[in-house]
Amino acid sequence: MSADTSIAGVAAALPIPNLDTDQIMPKQFLRGIDKAGLDRGVLYDLRFDANGAPRSDFVLNQPEYAGCRILVAEQNFGCGSSREHAVWGLVQLGIRAVIAPSFGEIFYSNAMNNGLLLIVVAQLDVDRFMNDVRNPATNRIDIDVARLQVRSRTHLAKFAMSARHRQMFLDGLDLVGASLASVEAIAAFERKHWEEQPWLQSVGAMVRARVC
């Protein structure tokens, strides 16, 4: 196994439901053609004021939460836009895992594709974790991926993870590589599919040529 089976460290509470990817990575950071410098953009309007100065009242700017590796968030974290920049930025900022009652679905896939661990636990568990990590004295969380459990100072919860996602996280499964191994199956599918529905073959080029 290439990745650690455990993630431990300082955790911060983000008690905002439906925290969307527009807020996690605002538009002005989407102008690149690479992935560089996205750590600066993470939760920008929450972390920085209108002049770009850090907001001292925001949890990630407080010294007790320096080096934060885990976020405890509310339901539907990462909803909205499909921008994977949100995940790249979190990873660049040093975030290794997010714990929440639920996640936006595209965000979930994006996180899995980048080794950002997303842990779904019940609202009651999240409440307990949040309670603990809001106090700087008890803001550490331990995640054991092998045992599928999360532990804070006063609470322990089990979580589920599909075998596939567990493997992706632990072994860094290369999806493109894996699917390319199925290239024969893809080609066979295409032959049959286009025989049945010839109007679906090369539809992009066909339309582009027609409307030229």
Partner: peptide, 11 residues
């Protein structure tokens, strides 16, 4: 997401 865009382009 973009990782999936890459996957679609390739496969």
């Amino acid at each position: 997401g973009t990782s999936e865009v890459e996957h679609v382009l390739a496969t």
